[in-house]
């Protein structure tokens, strides 16, 4: 199934034990709704066979341009969008809430008990806090809303106490609980989103572009906060962003996505030092740097991946400087080139 993990032998076994969430050969195809009659037979191939694992306690970064499938993968994990094929496995590990639960759950949209558990354990934090917080609710109600559905009865006082605790954890005050989202700045709203996500005591956060809507001076605050929360609450994080610099700062391991496929996966330090895939190199070269130069024109030119055509071969065909015939009809497997560093390219070894 999972070539990359199978290839590493004993390491794969170790990973399967350590992995909180394991995604194998994930595929997601959307039907293109272009009108009542026009939609027949038109599809968007959003995710085309992606495998990776989020280890317990690690921050896994997904980076790629818009349309690379990073958000779709995240939405599949929490089943906001049911996946088309492949498996997503969740292993909560032993603890008081895990009693009686299987060690490894296969995530499936038709298992409501599992979904409830999953959605309490894996929380999604969205990009734009101003559109993901209900403007009519007080912060207290926003934080406690999820608790109504977790099946446990808690007293109002207990909920309030939990809310106060979390407000302090994210750097806000108890008095802020009575205010509404519009009274806060963008950075403060993102803090509220984080407090809401932490309310159920999750094991993992999915942070989908959580800083890209924020001002530069605020982004750093939120990144620092996220690192603190991770330590304090012992979290695993799926950190999604288009900014390679931010991802390489925040993540322990990074997966580079393009056209719904994993192009490269490596420990953050390795990827920062030696991005090997031509696409990773393109992303790297596009980062504006002080004292840097403008890229040569045409560096990123060419035909971007078209998700409405059934994928054959490497998705980076059309933009790749190394492209040869083989690339158009044979999709390169994700091969390990050094420990933990995998690249999907016919010409990178």
């Amino acid at each position: 199934m999972n070539q990359s993990l199978a290839r590493t032998g004993t390491k794969a076994e170790a990973q399967s034990v350590d992995a909180l969430i394991r995604v194998d050969d994930l595929r997601k195809v959307f039907k293109l709704e272009a009108g009542l009659f026009a939609s027949a037979g038109r599809w968007v191939w959003a995710v085309n066979g992606v495998s990776f694992a989020i280890l317990r306690g690690e921050t896994y970064g997904l980076v790629g341009e818009s349309g690379s499938g990073k958000t779709t993968i995240a939405r599949c994990i929490v089943q906001l969008a049911p996946h088309t094929s492949g498996t997503i496995r969740y292993s909560p590990g032993p603890d008081e809430r895990g009693a009686g639960a299987p060690a490894l759950w296969e995530i499936d949209q038709h298992n409501p008990q599992l979904l409830r558990r999953l959605r309490a354990d894996v929380k999604y934090v969205f990009q734009d806090p101003s559109s993901s917080l209900d403007p009519r609710m007080s912060v207290l109600n926003i934080l406690c809303a999820g608790a109504k559905y977790n099946g446990q009865r808690s007293t109002a006082a207990a909920l309030k106490a939990r809310a106060v605790e979390l407000m302090q954890a994210v750097g806000l005050r108890e008095a802020d609980l009575q205010r509404r989202p519009s009274e806060f700045s963008g950075g403060q709203r993102q803090r509220i989103s984080l407090a809401r996500a932490l309310f159920s005591g999750p094991r993992a956060l999915i942070c989908d572009e959580v800083v890209s809507a924020l001002d530069v001076s605020i982004q750093g605050q939120i990144l620092n906060l996220l690192a603190d929360l991770k330590r304090q609450f012992n979290l695993s994080i799926l950190f999604i962003a288009h900014d390679l610099t931010v991802v390489s700062y925040m993540a322990d391991r990074i997966g580079v996505l393009y056209g719904g496929s994993m192009m490269e996966e490596a420990p953050a330090a390795d990827l920062a030092r030696t991005p090997l895939h031509p696409y990773s190199q393109l992303l790297y070269s596009a980062i504006p740097r002080i004292g840097g130069r403008l890229p040569d024109r045409g560096a990123a030119a060419g035909n971007p991946f078209n998700p409405t055509r059934a994928p054959t071969g490497c998705p980076f065909v059309g933009r790749c400087p190394l492209e040869k015939d083989i690339c158009t009809h044979e999709k390169p497997p994700l091969k390990e080139v050094s420990p933990g560093h995998r690249v999907a390219c016919h010409f990178v070894t």
Binding site: L223, S248, R273
Partner: peptide
């Protein structure tokens, strides 16, 4: 305010 290339959260906090 933003991480420099090669910085990592595990080693240094951002100066915000």
């Amino acid at each position: 305010a933003l991480p420099a290339w090669g910085n990592h959260y595990s080693r240094e906090k951002l100066i915000t």
